[in-house]
Design a protein around this nucleic acid. Structure first.
Lengths: 375, 375
DNA sequence: TTGTACGCGTTATCAG
DNA sequence: CTGATAACGCGTACAA
């Protein structure tokens, strides 16, 4: 190593100039050689590569993105990374981002719209190549900001709040005029990737129907779009089969209250009943409620969840549920955000998948003994 | 707006020069004004601020970090972000990083040392200000790389593999020579932040002791350092009380095998028994095993987990466990990595916290009825 | 208190 | 095929 080389290594920031000097070429040539430019002779390319190796050269991302007008950064906003659902989605995002040569800049909103805004500002400051927001509250003004500035934004499962009135309308109101109300729940602009909530709930309900259930209940989550759409799916299947109306529970979001409300229902009913829960945690609350009032699952009570979080596999009995393709949601959103197809607005719906485990079983008919689902 | 301003907004990249021009000052002054430099007159500062606002100016992170010699980036490497444990730790990291004005660059290793290396290379390429590795496998060569290049590295819960022989030695071997073997498990260099596994297991075991248990079992996880240290904590308490040896189970890491091995133990035993499980998932396997062989929890079998993952709250009965301070691990590691104190090597141990829920109860003594822990 | 001028490390343009 | 040179957007030493 020359003196210059030594000094460079010392200051621990070897630059292209150092590499060029060592290979006895200009920085331009060095740059091209390392970039794999074909207009470079093989011997030169080799000399440069050799110099870079010897000096342990690493390009400087900041300098590079200043010149090209692109960082290889993707801003990813989640509510909380402690949440299993968000974790899975981010998993999918990271996977695909890496494949496509991008890095993930992570921020958390804690379900607070001010923080959502701040996170976006950080992303903009960092000049990310695109933004993916996972289940944002979605203050409309914030959500339109990146697009206004020319930064692609993809929203996964926009978790817009809806008036409780709408939930009640779906649960109790007449069919007439319902589709119009529901249309208001579809995203009207921007690029969206989301789980098909309605179909997911339909799959769960159909599953119970196929097991011979005729009496049902639906347990709502908080008044958000997904809750409304899932309830709608539940209603639609049963209405089609002439089994509507059915009880619709609307507990507070605490596990305790969900359990209490479900217990109350069971106490004034008799088996068998099929419960479709808004999500897996709610389904687990139903399991606890059954335990509390002495009903056996799945003999007297069938329970289906939605989402298929990790927990679902570990309940006793293990939870039957409709899996939300979380990793795939993440992967697709990366494709969407990096896709050249810069369509102004799109809405990609991903189907769920029924996972039959131990909390659902065929109802025993008086006539003949139906087969029981094995544990 | 002047023509120049309009053009700037159009090309959607408003620079400091545009702001300076609009405020009729030099870029130097504009820079200083926005930085809050005191050597700027109030009217000027106001004019610059106003211009920046009007143009919706955003500084360019890449340009800035090129000048200062610091990106405000923190590289965070996890095994999988889908994992609940990693999610919580990252949560803590993000929280503290934000407080200290840093952004999080996330990468996943999938428990693969090649990918760990690649992630580090990416971090180095991005010139992060520091790196935090959560539960890395820790190929020694990779782990020393950042430090060699002057980039601070903090390792959370280094999850080094240990020979299975060592586990057996702790489970069955004599006390003599044990401490020497254990010393090999302490990190020998670098900055480490970790959960005190030994003390955690001791707390779990002490809890069962205080409830009057005299017969125990420990269920190991995979042969990693944490497994060894936890087993050691279990052993230490019981040896102190003259209750050693006790059965030590070493199932395969599948849930199924854990359950089978525990079931087998229960079938050849009689109640009451107190089980200390390597982690919460293993504890849940114990719960299932009890259910399978018809033992009631906590009346006939007490179970304590370790970690306190989200699931622990949702088992029936809810799981008693020793909580690992995951968020705090994350927060402390940020302080450590950004801390000026660049001590060559340090090892911070964080204590767990006993969370008593429903899977443990006092053993019923022949003499008088002991109080039962309430559900 | 403000302005001038340079350089951070790259890459792209234009000559040769 | 290669080299000189000019930016990218910002912060700061030095000068005024």
């Amino acid at each position: 190593m020359s003196d210059r080389d030594v000094r460079a290594v010392r200051r621990s920031t070897v630059t292209l100039r150092d590499v060029a000097a060592r290979a006895a070429v200009s920085t331009a040539t060095a740059s091209r050689a390392l970039a794999g430019d074909t207009a470079i002779s093989d011997p030169t390319r080799e000399r440069v590569a050799e110099a870079a190796r010897a000096l342990d050269y690493r390009p400087h991302a900041a300098a590079r993105s200043l010149r090209r007008r692109s960082t290889q950064l993707l801003g990813v906003l989640v509510t909380t990374s402690g949440d299993a659902y968000a974790g899975e989605v981010v998993h999918g995002i990271e996977l695909r981002a890496r494949e496509r040569g991008h890095q993930v800049l992570l921020a958390m909103s804690h379900v607070d719209s001010t923080r959502e805004r701040e996170a976006f500002e950080v992303f903009l400051y960092q000049r990310v190549d695109g933004i993916i927001a996972v289940s944002p509250i979605g203050d409309g003004d914030t959500m339109s900001l990146p697009t206004r500035l020319g930064v692609p934004l993809v929203i996964i499962n926009w978790d817009m709040a809806v008036p409780r009135k709408l939930i009640v309308r779906i649960a109790e109101g007449p069919t007439r005029g319902l589709t119009a109300s529901l249309r208001g729940l579809a995203p009207d602009s921007g690029t969206h990737v989301r789980f098909d909530d309605t179909m997911g709930a339909e799959m769960a309900t159909e599953h119970l129907r196929s097991l011979g259930h005729r009496r049902f209940a639906f347990v709502c989550g908080p008044p958000t779009r997904s809750s409304a759409l899932r309830l709608f799916g539940f209603r639609r299947v049963l209405e089609r089969d002439g089994l509507w109306p059915q009880p619709v529970l609307q507990p507070d979001p605490t596990l305790h209250d969900r359990e209490a409300v479900i217990s109350a229902l069971l106490e004034r009913s008799r088996p068998p009943i099929g419960i479709v829960a808004y999500d897996d945690l709610t389904a687990i609350a139903a399991l606890h409620a059954a335990h509390r009032v002495g009903w056996t699952v799945p003999e007297q009570l069938s329970v289906v969840g939605l989402d298929d979080i990790e927990l679902a596999e570990y309940t006793a009995p293990a939870l039957t549920t409709v899996a939300q393709p979380m990793v795939e949601l993440g992967e697709l959103s990366v494709d969407a955000v990096l896709g050249a197809a810069r369509r102004r607005t799109s809405d990609t719906l991903l189907e769920g998948k029924l996972i039959v485990r131990g909390t659902t079983a065929a109802v025993r008919r008086p006539r003949r003994t139906a087969a029981r689902a094995k544990r």
